[in-house]
Design a protein around this nucleic acid. Sequence first.
RNA 1: GCCCGAGUGGUGAAAUUGGUAGACACAACGGACUUAAAAUCCGUCGGGGGGAAACCUCCGUACCGGUUCGAUUCCGGUCUCGGGCACCA
Length: 875
Amino acid sequence: MQPNYLPSTIEQQAQQHWDSRQAFKAAESGDKPKYYCLSMFPYPSGKLHMGHVRNYTIGDVLSRYHRMKGFEVMQPMGWDAFGLPAENAAMANNVPPAAWTYSNIEYMKQQLKALGLGIDWSREVKTCTPEYYRWEQWLFTRLFEKGVIYKKTAVVNWDPVDNTVLANEQVIDGRGWRSGAVVEKRDIPMYFFRITQYADELLSGLDQLDGWPEQVKTMQANWIGKSFGVRFAFEVAAAGDNAAISHQLPATELLWVYTTRADTIMGVTFVAVAAEHPLATRAAQNNPALAAFIEECKQGGVAEADIATMEKKGMDTGIKVTHPLTGEQVPVWVGNYVLMGYGEGAVMAVPAHDERDFGFAKKYNLPIKQSIQVAGETFSTDAWAEWYGDKEQGVCVNSGKYDGLSYDQAIDAIAADLAAKDLGEKKVQFRLRDWGISRQRYWGCPIPIIHCPSCGDVAVPDDQLPVVLPEDVVPDGAGSPLAKMPSFYECSCPKCGGAARRETDTMDTFVESSWYYARYASPQCDTGMVDKAAAQRWLPVDQYIGGIEHAILHLLYARFFHKLMRDEGLVPGDEPFKNLLTQGMVIAPTFYRDEPNGKKLWINPAEVDVATDERGRPTGAVLKADGQPVVIGGTEKMSKSKNNGVDPQAIIDEFGADTARLFMMFAAPPDQSLEWSDAGVEGAFRFLKRVWKAVSDHVEQGVVAAYSGGELSAAAKALRFQLHQTIAKVDDDLGRRKTFNTAIAANMELLNALVKFNEVASRNVVQEALEAIVLMLTPIVPHMSQALWSELRPGSDLLDQSFPKADPAALVQDEIELVIQINGKLRGSLRVSKDADKATIEQLALAHEAVQKQLAGGTAKKVVVVPGRLINVVI
RNA sequence: GCCCGAGUGGUGAAAUUGGUAGACACAACGGACUUAAAAUCCGUCGGGGGGAAACCUCCGUACCGGUUCGAUUCCGGUCUCGGGCACCA
């Protein structure tokens, strides 16, 4: 046997062997239970980054583990190939997005293969191919005809210089990233998926998802945001205070608002409407200052984080409305924080009991009127106090007939009174908004709609699908290229045959990634979106793995799509992903130098030497090239902007894929962030060399049959005890807990014990242990395991092996160790027979010298015995 | 601003159901081997106090408080960092 561990040779051999056996092709039938393991597919950005390596290694470990547990595993891979970066790259390099994307896919596919992933490549899917997106277009036309897709206007970021719509990411500090122009909000027509129609099901469905992290389910539930409130109206009188604009108002007009705090309705002192609200628009007609303010509100982007953090500004419209219960006249203000596309585009304002309203009222000297009280507290309009917003303990005050009522009682009474006047009712509302999918971009799936002057919006008929996206286009950053291509948009109406114009918007790329998991079941199917039998066989996905950043949008859209496809009779079940593992980020240290122009020059960690003091604490860092100091920055997510990425290819080339995989799995549990460490990689490599040497040393003396019974020395018995304890733990860690780091640690401990064990008479136990270590490590370092197994069991193929089973007989112990605590602090230990009863244990513990010493002749107040663990003596 | 997480030695982490805090590694330091270096192997390694030593003892899981015989774990509050916020994927 080769005494040295040579990763490049054995990895190449192992991969060739797997290929020749077509080892990872998933069978469409058979007796084995199926296990569909899916990692979120990559965007083909150019080359793999460490986040990909981590994601796909986790998926591969789980896939290979389940294969060894007797499952028919399907692990597919594909490409989320449409998207904005391809257009940016195209403009930078003058290459069509399609060419750029396809060449990235080719390169990244080679990298994935070098990692030794057990992928069924025959199922590969690229979302930018007509074979894929034609079915997306097909579903679109079905949903359009069912009314699940509809058209309305929505507000977008508009760059007035480049005359183009910008993504939120392209708006920096309220300005377009290329033009630098102040961005404006602009209304444009778009197609929407009626996801709100499924809001209740998307919410209640979370309860079935036992295999999802609580954290993700909570985030989705909050995002859907089901609230129980009251929708009610203020009357806009066309007289009195509003005389100046009365000519524009109908006799009675209603201003509707929605609130979850109707119990505070008697504290309303004004109403705030969005800048785009019709009432504001009309009030501005004779009010230049208000018109200017409304114009100002249009500046800036549409991202909610920006709107929520900007300075709250407002202006009085001069309009007064009538409070539906008190009859009081309250002013209507325009507020820049009120969103038109949200609820009614208008909110009641209760400064006394809403923190945002409180701040607004203080700023503009609007009245603050207390209407709830918490016992023992004192209300003051000087400063906000937390209890002002307390709906659990608050009761109504200064509220006439509602005084003394609790939140629930007040809502019931107030809703009833509003209903009696026909001015309101209880209403369930969702925070979730319908999903706008129109994008004014080129590199995406064309929306299959034809605009006919006489028939309106007509869905493209099945026999004319797919609407093919031309692939030889280079965008210029100013509007959609498709809208400038008559060859694309000129067409005839499928209904009347008259001249018509094809829709030139493309779909949100989240649409492609919402159903790819289903397409993998039958990726070549050309008679439908999915083959029903294949969907029955493989769905749902048993294990889905991806970044936590997808906790809400992608995962919610995919759940929604599954329900849409279910309602079309395409897929079984209500949910697409049975188990979900959200992996943490890969982070690395950052280094920089301050440049004369005030900017920071980020330096890659590979170019830096870090000096440490005698305790190992970093004291400074210098650039290798010039020996001059650099500044040590924070440890952050690997990114191009901070230049702290480590190229996975370099690690594979230097140490091999197994070392890269082992380090990634060992350095942190999968759901936590993982800090990159070159030294840690070397540590992983060292461990593999130790495993290799242990097997090599053993094999050189001749392989033997593994231990299968008979008398053993005490040391051999102890080793077998540890071995089978480790098997049980690793099985649990890989299968149930998915904590690969502790599974690896347990194998390291076992190897440490094994190399110390030196009984020539017990080589069969060593053989048993080495075989088990190789099998347990197989999911993590498959190449090395493949090579070692053929040395330990000549003529046998690791691909056909099962995961080892713990031998119960090896785990039987006569004596166990119990810990003795005094007042909860460790003071000693005790060995007792495994079936000693509580009374015996208590007696032995009290007689223990440490306890006697502490008792100093006194007696114990209390003794707690936890069987199998400890005794706590309270004195 | 809102929603969701996280915080444990010099570092990454472990402690699975409230039961021995720091497993397993990395770094550092000391030693062996070597002409030397690399590699490898052995040892020390949270902090304070006591002891020649075996060892004893107090403190310690971001911070403040609570529940409990016992809290890294549960509860209330605070701080810091990270993810998401609907057109990045």
